[in-house]
């Protein structure tokens, strides 16, 4: 107990950092659920592809840590753009290949769920087997820095050096901590405004409320569904870069655990609720850290999921419990 109190600030900040990543990934689950009432289980792979895109940008540019600030910012922005583009692209591909026909045929939700799980396996294995794929096309040597040790952790050479900014309660908050928490909140606010104020955002809300009525009012449902996947993917891409800045490595199956946690965050905050996703992420990240500190790291998931169950017992629709469709304009 005294350990938790003595290190309260550190546990809180690192918990919030992790929670910010959970929250951004959770947005993808929440958006798609809000519009289609289906859980896009392949969203974790959308995130994973984004993380590799960011890694490959730094590999291609080969920037050493400690470069001049403009270069560092430029590289990080490029990595961010690449991660967002790749994640968004993979999300669109998923929608096209795994969902569109099922949605059009009005297939049972379970069928779409299985399709999503299948797509998740396929995408993860594709990344895990990328060395063999390169072999197949005879590009193994050219692509070596991108495909070597495909099953192992791949390191992200962060061009930004972690530096302490200020000290609070015995913990030195680093520049990376601040960047992650602030950008997550900014992205969330931007997305919230996008949903509330733009034409596409209004369309998303309309389809979420009643897709048939929305179609009658002239909303192009397919276009809105595509936009929803794209926006969720872009958020996952941003989350991927932030994750790499903090944790430094990614792996072909890194999405699985993170996906489960992000999905949990989405449910915790109220699935279909955009603000709830980030709040759920923060609560989950903090619960994991406090739980680890109280009893030991092996109990972190037990504590986190017990909390989830208890919260859902009292608030079955999650902390904020409002659906996307009923979000106020």
């Amino acid at each position: 107990m005294s350990f938790l109190i003595d290190n309260f600030v550190e546990l809180t900040v690192t918990g919030l950092v992790l929670g910010a990543v959970y929250g951004l990934v959770a947005l993808g689950y929440t958006l798609v659920y809000g519009v289609l009432q289906l859980i896009n289980f392949a969203h974790s792979e959308v995130w994973m592809f984004g993380s590799f895109a960011a890694v490959w940008v730094t590999v291609a540019l080969g920037v050493a840590p400690g470069s001049a600030l403009p270069i560092v910012i430029g590289v990080l922005l490029l990595a961010l753009l690449a991660a967002m583009a790749v994640s968004g692209g993979v999300a669109l591909l998923l929608e096209r290949v795994a969902y569109r026909r099922l949605i059009r045929l009005d297939a049972p939700k379970l069928v779409a769920l299985i399709s999503a799980i299948g797509a998740s396996f396929a995408l993860a294995e594709f990344m895990g087997l990328r060395d063999r794929i390169a072999d197949f096309f005879g590009l193994r040597d050219t692509l070596d820095p991108y495909v070597r040790s495909a099953r192992d952790n791949t390191r992200f050479q962060n061009p930004l050096q972690t530096e302490g900014v200020f000290t609070v309660g015995g913990y030195t908050v680093s520049n990376v901590d601040i960047i992650i928490i602030v950008s997550a909140i900014l992205m969330m606010v931007a997305l919230d405004q996008f949903i509330r104020r733009t034409r596409t955002g209004r369309g998303i809300r309309a389809v979420a409320q009643d897709s048939e009525a929305a179609a009658l009012m002239g909303v192009n449902r397919n276009r809105i569904i595509r936009a929803t996947f794209l926006v969720g993917g872009i958020m996952a891409g941003a989350a991927a870069l932030l994750y790499l800045m903090r944790f430094g490595v990614t792996r072909w199956n890194a999405g699985f655990l993170l996906g489960v946690k992000a999905f949990t965050a989405a449910v915790l905050g109220g699935i279909g609720n955009i603000r709830g996703a980030l709040l759920g992420g923060f609560v989950l990240g903090l619960a994991e850290n406090y739980g680890s500190a109280l009893i030991g790291s092996e109990w972190r998931d037990v504590v986190a999921f017990l909390l989830l169950v208890v919260i859902l017992l009292f608030r079955p629709t999650g902390l904020l419990g409002e659906s996307l469709g009923r979000a106020r304009a």
Partner: peptide
């Protein structure tokens, strides 16, 4: 402390 295989965030352990 005990961690889990597959875990990526060790902040509580580091603390």
């Amino acid at each position: 402390d005990t961690i889990q295989t597959g875990q990526t965030d060790f902040s509580a352990t580091v603390t």
